[in-house]
């Protein structure tokens, strides 16, 4: 039903997500996020969505970690005293996370699933190009507007930083 490979990939996804959150170094967190995205791309590919998998792999596993690494490199690292203090507090805050996540997984796996999921009434189209360009063309306009909003936002933010310096 689930398949051994799918199960293995889901476990790797979960472990990499946990490692992303639990690791102390922010750079390692960014690398963990890239690993999570790469594993997710493989799962998406196996679920019959190759175009979304390519986008996930190139953008989420490639571009976004680079963005995080550049943000981290533009901020200064902690001093040794700050690191020690942070380490103590951090252990207290994050120690419950693996137990919460695994406990929830165990609890949900013991629950009975209501299997009567209603089928959507939307028209069934098998070609993703048909959906993007013909059925949901308004989405494309929205995406362009979001892109422009993002570009203008970043330009204004970075311009302010430059003028302050």
């Amino acid at each position: 039903m689930l398949g051994h490979l799918n199960l293995l990939l889901l476990i790797i996804l979960l472990v990499s997500a946990l490692w992303t959150v639990l690791t102390r170094s922010l750079i390692r967190s960014a690398i963990g996020l890239a690993l999570t995205s790469a594993v997710l791309a493989v799962i998406i590919f196996r679920l019959g969505s190759p175009l979304a998998a390519v986008c996930e792999l190139s953008v989420c596993a490639g571009l976004i970690p680079v963005l995080f690494v550049s943000t981290i490199s533009l901020t200064h690292p902690r001093t040794q005293a700050e690191k020690l203090e942070h380490r103590r507090g951090r252990l207290k805050r994050f120690i419950f996370l693996p137990f919460v996540a695994l406990g929830l997984g165990l609890f949900l796996s013991l629950m009975k699933l209501p299997l009567n999921i209603p089928s959507p009434l939307a028209q069934r189209v098998y070609d993703v190009r048909e959906v993007i360009w013909n059925m949901r063309s308004l989405d494309l306009i929205g995406q362009v507007i979001i892109f422009l909003a993002g570009v203008f936002g970043v330009v204004i933010l970075l311009k302010e930083i430059k003028s302050h310096e």
């Binding site: 998406i44 679920l47 019959g48 969505s49 175009l51 979304a52 986008c55 996930e56 959507p120 939307a122 069934r124 189209v125 098998y126 070609d127 993703v128 048909e130 959906v131 993007i132 059925m135 949901r136 989405d139 929205g142 995406q143």
Partner: peptide, 11 residues
């Protein structure tokens, strides 16, 4: 409906 899901994921 993988085509619809892919278009939503791309968005």
């Amino acid at each position: 409906q993988t085509a619809l899901a892919q278009s939503l994921v791309i968005t």
